[in-house]
């Protein structure tokens, strides 16, 4: 008889994110939950994953979870610390496989808004602005988005495209001159999404334990395509939770 494993939505998101990290790839890590997912993946199964941070840290050996992309842990024991234009330059040169970030809104084509809610000239809410998000999506080979799943956060069209996804559909990225393959995965507390090859629209790949595709659709502001192989996300394992809670985020900075 096994004990029921308990976890919080943020822990689940972090674990699903960690599973997407691929050994031997370089990952340009954005702020928030990507910091957790990247470190967790590296500790669990991708020891040779190479993290890059926009403050300039390359491949650090942090003893603790960085709580910011400029946190000293992002360059602790780093073999080199680059300037900001260089870290993005190296990404453009082809040294960044994955960009990994969050944002306020994401639409069905994977465009992300971190600038404003409402019209740009008279916003009802003014947000932070791009930071490195636009550059990561423009320069990295593929992009992972992470965030909470609510209808207003998953609208049909974002109010402002801070960070380009597939823009308005097939061929638009190429026409605009953007590099990389564009959006690849979306992790939310309800499911894991990818993109349809033909239409470039977001589609559901996995629904998290206790959630149904119908429920996810209700929490999405546009029609979500469903992958033919859609399945339930494997539950977090005891080992995943142990590493997350004891080694990655023992102070519950992000996962509470």
């Amino acid at each position: 008889m096994t004990e029921e494993i308990q976890y919080t939505p943020r822990e689940l998101i972090a674990i699903v994110a960690g599973r997407l990290m691929v050994d031997g790839e370089s990952v340009f890590v954005g702020t928030g939950l990507p910091l957790v997912g990247a470190l967790l993946g590296k500790k669990l199964h991708a020891p040779n994953m190479l993290p890059l941070y926009e403050c300039g840290g390359v491949d650090p050996e942090p003893r603790e979870l960085p709580w910011s992309v400029a946190c000293p842990w992002t360059y602790y024991k780093a073999p080199i610390i680059l300037s900001m234009s260089s870290i993005f330059g190296h990404s453009r040169a082809g040294y960044a496989d994955v960009g990994f970030l969050g944002g306020a809104q994401i639409d069905m084509y994977g465009n992300i808004n971190a600038t404003c809610i409402g019209p740009y000239d008279h916003p009802s809410v003014r947000l932070t602005g791009s930071g490195g998000a636009n550059d990561m999506a423009s320069l990295c080979q593929r992009l992972i988005f992470i965030g909470l799943h609510l209808p207003q956060r998953f609208p049909e069209r974002v109010d402002y495209i801070t960070t380009p996804g597939f823009l308005d559909g097939p061929g638009a990225r190429e026409k605009a001159g953007l590099l990389g393959q564009g959006p690849w995965r979306v992790i939310s507390h309800l499911g894991l999404m990818g993109y349809d090859e033909e239409t470039r629209r977001m589609k559901l790949l996995q629904y998290h334990p206790g959630v149904t595709p119908e429920l996810i659709q209700q929490f999405t502001g546009f029609e979500l395509l469903i992958d033919k192989d859609v399945h339930e996300t494997p539950k977090p394992t005891a080992e995943e939770l142990r590493v997350l809670r004891e080694e990655v985020d023992p102070n519950q900075i992000f996962c509470f």
């Binding site: 926009e54 300037s83 900001m84 234009s85 993005f88 453009r92 600038t115 740009y120 602005g129 791009s130 930071g131 490195g132 998000a133 636009n134 550059d135 423009s138 320069l139 402002y160 495209i161 801070t162 960070t163 380009p164 823009l167 638009a172 990225r173 605009a176 001159g177 953007l178 590099l179």
Partner: peptide, 30 residues
């Protein structure tokens, strides 16, 4: 701007070029 956008604007001044041609911000509302 994007972070790299302003970083490059400053870097252009340092490197003594009038402007730089980059691949950031394309296609976006920026």
């Amino acid at each position: 701007w994007s972070h790299d956008g302003l970083a490059l604007a400053l870097r252009a001044a340092e490197q003594g070029v009038n402007y730089v041609a980059c691949k950031s911000m394309l296609g976006s509302d920026i």
